[in-house]
Design a protein around this nucleic acid. Structure first.
Lengths: 208, 208
DNA sequence: ACAATATTTTACCAACCGGTCAAAGCGAGG
DNA sequence: CCTCGCTTTGACCGGTTGGTAAAATATTGT
């Protein structure tokens, strides 16, 4: 016996189920992040996953279900880098660490970033609750930490919420608008340059 | 006689044509900026414009045509604030002026900002050419100006392209992600605070 | 080998999509 | 009044959409 945990019989997944559900979620991420929820079709996702449409619907009950599963999984990934910012660390390195982690997510998971951006752009109909719940709670808590650093003179006097917004926008820009960045630069997005630039920016900004 | 300019007989518009075309473009902006091109339907746009679908198609030949007209009109609006940055002005006020103009556009034309963001997010299929053409040319020119300021010691040593990207992302964030900003803050987007914050940020960043 | 179960396919449906068309309504000038 | 051109409408079309039913096929445990 290897596993039998939850009380409500979680039904262990077969090999095929595991593989196909993963393929569908990956395909859904690809398609939803490009066209948004309404602009994506089940046929697109099914084809990208190497399945037929009815076969896809054997694993997920609806288009909504795929999208919902992607979004809930995403929220955790989204909050983690901010959670890692410690109140008892050195303020500037802590904040720069957050910037670096967030930029690294744009580099490694641009599709996830675009899925999130698409959802927000379209009014966040499916995650508005999480934004004013979980997300707001976490941000408010971290904003207080930043405020204390600010008042203790460890960093400059600064609006903590806008500081956090600026970290989000600057780092996500390289994933969400990468087509524009590439078009303007005439080459692939240079994440190393971006990191240097952002470190320079936040070091100068935060210095008391 | 009041007007007869172009050589190819531009056909003067009726009062009704002027009014209905404007209503359609406004409705199209509303709908496209929320759902993206593929996620929007002619019925949605027609209803928002107070017309029937066939009536809408009497004024525009296709869904594409409405979207195209919105995008081309948008590009000019998008480039203007950057064009206004003068090489012969004081560097910091010139750059801050650009920041302020761009933020003001987010405040006054959030739908246009979101329409643009949607198009870029979805791979910019309809304006990629303009991005690596017109936009790149203008940005490269202004980047050179910034480089000269930098080398002359009037502002800090800085990567001009990333500086421009950061102005874009920071200002547009308040329009494109306004749902998120409002959810986290628990109130309407405070553009005055945002302006103060951005001025603080760029003044500290640019100081040599 | 064989039954039970898990998976895949084929055929299909009602609703919706972008777009067409011909007829009807409408207002201004003679 | 009537006509002429602009405007609006309703009926319709072929294709696509999300989703279903059931039969056919693989896979699995014994």
């Amino acid at each position: 016996m290897i596993m039998t945990a939850s009380p409500a019989e979680p039904k262990p997944l077969t090999r095929i189920q595991t593989k196909n559900r993963a393929a569908i979620l990956d395909a859904g991420l690809e398609v939803f992040s490009t066209y948004g929820f309404r602009g994506s079709t089940l046929d697109q996702i099914a084809t990208a996953a190497g399945l037929s449409k009815p076969n896809l619907l054997y694993y997920f009950p609806s288009k909504e279900a795929i999208h919902a599963e992607l979004l809930t999984g995403l929220l955790t990934t989204w909050l983690d880098p901010l959670k890692l910012m410690r109140a008892d660390g050195d303020p500037v390195p802590e904040l720069l660490g957050y910037v670096r982690r967030k930029l690294e997510m744009s580099r490694q998971f641009p599709r996830e970033s675009r899925l999130f951006a698409n959802e927000i752009l379209q009014g966040a109909p499916r995650i508005k609750a999480a934004l004013s719940g979980e997300l707001k709670t976490l941000v408010d808590a971290k904003a207080q930490v930043i405020s204390k650093w600010s008042k203790a003179g460890l960093i400059t006097e600064i609006d903590p919420h806008h500081l956090i917004f600026s970290i989000w926008s600057l780092t996500q820009h390289y994933a969400d608008f990468d087509v524009q960045v590439r078009a303007v630069l005439g080459r692939d997005v240079p994440f190393d340059e971006a990191e240097q630039y952002l470190v320079q920016l936040f070091e100068k900004l935060l210095k008391p």
